[in-house]
Lab assay of single mutants.
Amino acid sequence: SEFQINEQVLASWSDSRFYPAKVTAVNKDGTYTVKFYDGVVQTVKHIHVKA
Rank of each mutant, 00 (worst) to 15 (best):
D38L: 08
V44E: 01
K45N: 11
V9M: 03
V41S: 09
R17E: 10
Q8W: 15
K45M: 13
E2W: 11
V9I: 08
S14C: 13
Q8E: 15
A11W: 02
A11H: 02
V41D: 05
T24A: 05
K50I: 14
H48P: 02
K22W: 13
Q8F: 14
H48L: 10
V41T: 10
V49S: 08
G39M: 05
Q4H: 12
V9E: 01
Y32F: 08
N27L: 06
E7N: 06
T24E: 10
V40P: 07
D38Q: 06
K45W: 09
L10F: 11
V44K: 03
F36K: 00
I5Q: 04
V49N: 05
F36G: 01
L10E: 05
S16V: 07
I47V: 08
G39S: 05
V41Q: 06
Q8A: 11
V34L: 06
N27H: 11
V9R: 02
A51P: 13
S14K: 13
T31N: 02
S1R: 15
T33H: 01
K28Y: 08
S14P: 07
F36V: 00
E2V: 13
V49L: 14
K28S: 13
V34S: 00
S14W: 10
P20C: 14
D15Q: 04
F3S: 02
N6E: 07
G30I: 00
V40K: 13
Y32P: 00
H46T: 12
H48D: 12
G39P: 02
Y19E: 05
S12T: 10
A21M: 04
S12F: 14
F18D: 02
F18H: 04
F36Y: 04
T43H: 07
H46D: 12
V44Q: 01
V41H: 06
H48K: 13
K22N: 06
N6L: 07
S16Q: 10
D15C: 12
D29G: 04
D15T: 04
A25P: 00
S1V: 13
D15F: 04
R17C: 14
T24C: 14
T43P: 01
Y32D: 00
N6D: 12
T31W: 07
N6T: 02
F18W: 15
V44I: 09
F36L: 03
D38Y: 09
I47E: 14
F18T: 02
L10K: 00
H48R: 11
L10C: 15
K22Y: 13
D29A: 01
K35S: 08
H46A: 15
Y37D: 10
F3C: 06
N27S: 03
V41Y: 09
E2P: 12
R17F: 10
A25V: 07
V44H: 03
A25D: 04
H46L: 12
V9T: 03
W13E: 01
G39I: 05
A11T: 03
E2H: 14
V49C: 07
A21S: 01
K45G: 11
Y37Q: 09
S1H: 14
W13I: 10
D29M: 02
P20I: 09
D29I: 02
D38V: 07
E7C: 09
H46V: 11
Y37K: 07
K50L: 13
Y32N: 00
V23E: 00
K28G: 13
V9L: 02
V26E: 01
Y37I: 10
V34F: 03
E2Q: 14
Y37F: 13
S14Q: 12
Q8R: 09
L10I: 07
P20A: 08
P20Q: 07
G30W: 06
F3P: 03
V41N: 05
G30Y: 04
T33S: 06
I5T: 04
V23W: 01
A21K: 01
V26M: 07
W13A: 10
Y19S: 05
T33V: 12
I47T: 15
D38H: 11
K22S: 09
H46C: 13
H48N: 14
T24N: 04
N6R: 03
A11P: 00
F18V: 04
L10H: 05
D15W: 05
Q8P: 10
D29F: 03
A21I: 05
F36I: 02
V23A: 01
V34K: 00
N27I: 03
R17D: 09
H46F: 13
A25T: 06
K45E: 11
D29V: 01
K45F: 10
P20K: 06
K35F: 07
Y37R: 08
D38T: 14
F36T: 03
V41K: 05
I5E: 06
V34T: 00
S14A: 11
A51L: 11
R17P: 11
F36R: 09
V49R: 12
F18C: 11
V26Q: 04
K35R: 12
G39Y: 04
A21P: 02
A25N: 07
T24P: 00
Y37C: 14
L10V: 06
S12P: 09
N27T: 04
W13P: 05
T43E: 06
A21D: 00
V44W: 07
T43V: 13
V34G: 00
W13V: 09
A51I: 09
Q42T: 12
Q4E: 08
R17N: 11
Y32K: 00
P20E: 06
S12D: 02
F36W: 06
K28T: 11
D15P: 06
V40N: 12
T43G: 03
Q8T: 13
V23Y: 01
R17I: 12
K45R: 11
Y32C: 03
D29K: 01
F18K: 00
A21Q: 00
V23C: 03
R17T: 10
Q8C: 15
R17S: 08
V9H: 02
V49P: 08
G39L: 05
K28V: 10
K28I: 10
Y32E: 00
Q8M: 14
K22R: 13
D29N: 08
K50C: 11
V9F: 03
T24R: 02
D38S: 13
D15R: 01
G39C: 08
Y37N: 10
Q42H: 12
H46M: 13
I47S: 14
V44G: 03
V44S: 03
D38G: 09
H46E: 11
P20W: 08
P20T: 06
T24V: 15
K50E: 06
A25R: 09
F3H: 04
R17H: 11
D15L: 02
Q8I: 15
K50T: 09
G39K: 04
S1F: 14
S14T: 12
F18N: 01
V40D: 08
N27E: 03
V41M: 08
A21H: 01
Y32G: 00
A21C: 05
Y32A: 01
A25W: 07
T43F: 08
V23M: 01
H46Y: 11
Q8Y: 15
D38A: 05
K28A: 13
S14R: 12
W13Q: 08
S14F: 10
F3W: 08
S1M: 14
S16T: 10
T24W: 04
A11L: 06
Q8S: 13
A11S: 03
V41W: 06
D38C: 15
R17W: 08
D29W: 04
D29Q: 01
K35L: 14
K45P: 13
T33L: 07
Q8N: 14
V41E: 12
K22D: 03
A21G: 07
K50A: 07
V40C: 14
Q4Y: 09
V23I: 15
